[in-house]
Design a protein around this nucleic acid. Structure first.
Length: 883
RNA sequence: GCGGACGUGCCGGAGUGGUCAAACGGGAUGGACUCAAAAUCCAUUGGCUUAGUGCCUACGCAGGUUCGAACCCUGCCGUCCGCACCA
């Protein structure tokens, strides 16, 4: 009896000693990667365990399949929690982080994951973040990185700015504080320049979940429209609209309060005071409330007018809380009759409403309208365009504007540039020096190290107070310089770490050659929460690095799997809810294999996993059955149908497990293994054919490796085998070794297709006592539904039921099965012309005698159906059988 | 508002046109073993039942397509998730 709990550390040690998972680039490269973890203080949680169990199973399977697998692990170790710990617990963030990593690594090792630990990386190490800085400077050179004053999301909890992607429902994605608006000088990456490519690239990602692609698509938010120039005094403002057809309905314009032109215009006017308090109010308003649809429309007139580009009419200018500064021009032309927001705004400020689109079924009346009309219709009140369908009008008006040089067709994106500066300590310093003489100078001497003379007070950025850091020499003139104190968003670190695993160069972030050999990642696994963050950034980085000629591919991750959450009683396991089950507790109680087995078996990887202690216990019991498989066996040499059946079962199981693994249906793969074990246990109860039994157990040991590697190795060694199953070849299945007759005898039902002679040959029956011919009859289809029951009835030895599903075949336009040609060849009494169900039935009836004579048995004709499914299960075979 | 996913037995969950009263697992009940329990094994686990290779009702609800639907289509209800005043 194998002791499940005791074998884990034994094999982990052996794997470690022999360094069997060290990967070297060669032929058949295959890169399996899980999203690397943040080393938090609470260590590994169930989500991690699930993530790694899935990835490891796949990596192990691919390795056994003969692939040269790269399967590394590392730590995303820069980030706020470390700094917060430093503030709260007065610990050095580096120490705190490194302790956590130590802890986490230990936990990971105890699961028996087959990582190549020699490639481990930590993003907070100098040799890693040096290259963040190096890439930053390359981006700066290329114009991908830039600094600008911008309204930003400020998280008062984290005391730093956030990227758009990190604001969830108006709150900080990490600490859930309400995000505030601020206007600050910040560093950005021009991800927007790649918007079109990021969008189009999604189509090529055939093996990504649709859901993630849709989320990214929505996030990029491409929309086609028209840019229209409005003259405002001496200025020209080109606004963006998707509804150029409503141009003649414009009765006012609304600017975002942050728009710099607005401040300029109101300066020194009677509107200045009111505007300033309005701006303050809007900025204080929390972003989510401000943006939410149906939110209160606030605004004010700013005493300026624009002139309509075509009619020259005077158009009053307003500022409004609903206009987003960063999108389009930060200003809109307002058409209250045909836009709900504009309508509400116009009602509130008593601005005229002008209908320019009329629906066909009724007539819009400004005095009675209670909401904007946003559907299709024909243009009215639009000189030269009246009567035109509005969709056509968009094109026509666009053409007209272009001709007059007043506008053009443009494409707009919701995606904003990626704000990467963070006003915090525990991140990669941005390698820039400000000098009064030279301005902004890149620091070429890398790395710019994080200083140690800092205090964590929780107030402000510690880097600003560091004497050794903030003050420095200008790299250009040698004069006094000021160092940039912003650090980089940690998502910069994770945007290229998968490249560094391929080649941890000392001269470059990575060497192109090995990277091009391993990349793209063949299988990436992680949570869906990164759909619009990490996964978008990494795609952007890859494209940017490609443009820097550092890599030769466009997409970093060929195939993506987003694993589902781990739930307890229907809700996500989380500390705040107190429903956390610690992986370590489970590992201690049952051992690593049980934990892995349970987590892989209970739900398909993409689905949510409901944690249930009873289920874990069940898995433990089941694995123990495997453990005692080799105990007290009574060996003999019998070679009957049971033995043949078992061999067949084994081949079928290997085939199934392989197919399921390829499709990532791990729970079904385990189900198939369990089925085999069940048969083995059953078989073992009688006298056992040693050769057959051991062959099956050997193969079982091999196919267990991806799921329960320790048990797999142990079983292998108990069998007296040499080497590791982890390095062994995946067994080859051979469906020819399946003895159909034995299978039918053991399972009572099998499925065979062919003409009658073929069927007889396949099942090894020379003289059947009865042949039943199945015909689906349109006029007697109630029989069809009882097909299964008929089957169950006819379990008499030597009897064949041949099925034929006429309706199905007819639908697919196929010829009417092999049975009919057989009959045609053997009958002179067949009807002329086309065969339909009815004539087939007649034909069968007429040929009943002939068949009976040929096979020397009685023949019955049954009206019933036949399963397409059966054909799928055993391609090229259909029919049915019996004991 | 827009977009997406899902709704199957006591529970977790397979199945996505015909071997379906529904894989696999958990739980429950009965039985075997035992002084007893754990473990293990066997049986039962939609209803009715003259117990039969029997009948009826079931895969959120209501329709439709089909010889045939848990599976395809339409509408509705419910749950969950993502985006959200994007002009």
């Amino acid at each position: 009896m194998i002791n499940l709990k005791k074998i884990s550390s034994k094999w982990q040690k052996k794997w470690d000693e022999k360094k069997i998972f060290k990967s070297v680039s060669g032929k058949n490269n295959f890169y399996v990667l899980e999203m690397f973890p943040y080393p938090s203080g609470s260590g590994l949680h169930m989500g991690h365990l699930r993530n790694y169990a899935i990835g490891d199973a796949f990596a192990r399977y691919k390795r056994m399949k003969g692939f040269n697998v790269l399967y590394p692990m590392g730590y995303d170790s820069f980030g706020l929690p470390a700094e917060n710990a430093a503030i709260k617990q007065k610990v050095d963030p580096r120490k705190w982080t490194e302790n956590n990593i130590k802890q986490m690594r230990k936990q990971q090792k105890s699961i028996g994951l087959s990582y190549d630990w020699s490639r481990e990386l930590m993003t907070h190490s100098e040799e890693y973040y040096k290259w963040n800085q190096w890439i930053f400077l390359k981006f700066l050179e290329k114009g991908i990185a830039y600094k600008k004053e911008a309204p930003v999301n400020w998280c008062p909890g984290c005391k730093t700015v956030l990227a758009n992607e990190q604001v969830v429902s108006g709150k900080c994605w990490r600490c859930k504080s309400q995000v505030e608006n601020k206007f600050l000088g910040q560093w950005f990456f021009k991800i927007r320049d790649y918007a079109e490519e990021l969008l189009n690239g999604l189509d090529g990602l055939k093996n990504w979940p649709e859901k993630v692609k849709i989320m990214q698509k929505n996030w990029i938010g491409r929309s086609e429209g028209t840019e229209i120039e409005f003259k405002i005094g001496k200025e020209k403002v080109a606004i963006f609209t998707t509804r150029a057809d409503t141009l003649f309905g414009v009765t006012f314009m609304v600017f975002a309060p942050e728009h710099p032109l607005v401040a300029k215009w109101v300066k020194g006017t009677k509107y200045e005071k009111e505007f300033n308090s309005f701006l303050k109010e809007v900025q204080k308003e929390d972003k989510f409330e401000r943006m939410a649809e149906g939110g209160e429309k606030k605004g004010m007139f700013i005493g300026k007018y624009a002139s309509h580009p075509i009619t020259g009419e005077k158009i009053p200018l307003y500022v409004g809380n609903f206009v987003v500064y960063e999108y389009g021009a930060g200003a809109v032309m307002a058409v209250p009759a045909h836009d709900q927001r504009d309508f509400e705004f116009a009602k509130r400020f008593k601005i005229p409403i002008k209908v320019v689109i009329q629906p066909s079924s009724y007539k819009l009346d400004v005095t009675t309208m209670s909401q904007a009309y946003t559907k299709d219709g024909k243009l009215v009140n639009s000189p030269n365009f009246n009567g035109l369908g509005n969709r056509k009008a968009i094109v026509e008006i666009g053409k007209f504007l272009k001709q007059k040089k007043l506008g053009k067709a443009v494409v707009n994106y919701k995606l904003r540039d990626w704000l990467i500066s963070r006003q915090r300590y525990w991140g990669t310093p941005i390698p820039i020096v400000y000098c009064d003489k030279c301005g902004m100078v890149p620091e070429k001497k890398l790395p710019v190290l994080l200083p140690k003379d800092v205090k964590f007070t929780g107030e402000g950025n510690p880097l600003e107070d560091s004497k050794s850091f903030a003050k420095c020499k200008c790299p250009k003139c040698g004069g006094v310089g000021r160092r940039e104190t912003d650090t980089m968003d940690t998502f910069v670190d994770s945007s290229w770490y998968f490249l560094r695993y391929c080649s941890a160069s000392k001269k470059l972030p990575f060497e192109s050659d090995p990277v091009n050999k391993w990349m793209p990642v063949d299988q990436y696994i992680g949570g869906i929460e990164h759909a619009c963050m990490h996964l978008m950034y990494a795609r952007f980085f890859t494209k940017a690095l490609r443009d820097l000629k550092m890599v030769k591919f466009d997409e970093p991750f060929a195939r993506l799997l987003c694993q589902g959450m781990v739930l307890k009683e229907g809700v996500k396991m989380s500390k705040s809810l107190g429903n956390v089950v610690e992986p370590e507790v489970i590992m201690d109680k049952y051992g690593a294999d049980t934990a892995r087995w349970f987590i892989l078996f209970t739900a398909l990887p993409e689905k949510e996993l409901e944690w249930c202690e009873g289920g874990v216990d069940g898995c433990f019991k089941f694995l123990n059955k495997i453990c005692s498989l080799l105990d007290e066996v009574e060996y003999g040499n019998e070679m009957g149908s049971k033995e043949k059946y078992l061999i067949g079962k084994m081949h079928r199981t290997i085939e199934k497990v392989e197919n399921y693994l390829e499709k990532f249906e791990l729970s079904l793969a385990i189900g198939a293994v369990m089925d085999l074990v069940k048969h083995l246990v059953k078989y073992k109860k009688g006298e056992v054919n040693k050769k057959v039994f051991l062959e099956v157990v050997e193969n079982l040991a091999l196919i267990l490796n991806p799921f329960v590697p320790h048990l797999s190795e142990e079983l292998w060694s108990v069998l007296g085998k040499k080497g590791f199953t982890s390095l062994a070849k995946w067994p080859k299945y051979d469906l020819k070794k399946i003895d159909l007759k034995a299978e039918m005898a053991e399972e009572a039902i099998g499925v065979v297709m062919g003409d009658i002679s073929t069927v007889l040959e396949l099942i090894g029956i020379k003289k059947p006592s009865l042949i039943k011919l199945f015909v689906a009859d349109k006029w007697k289809y109630d029989f069809i539904t009882k097909f299964k029951k008929l089957l169950a009835k006819d379990r008499n030895p030597g009897m064949i039921i041949k099925g034929l599903m006429v309706g199905e075949l007819k639908k697919h336009g196929k010829e009417i099965s092999k049975l009919v040609p057989y009959l045609i060849n053997n009958s002179s009494k067949l009807p002329e012309g086309k065969l339909d169900q009815k004539s087939e039935l007649t034909a069968l009836e007429e040929n009943k005698e002939a068949i009976a004579e040929e096979f020397e048995c009685s023949v019955e004709i049954i009206v019933g159906g036949l399963e397409e499914k059966a054909r799928k299960a055993m391609p090229g075979k259909v029919g049915v059988l019996v004991e």
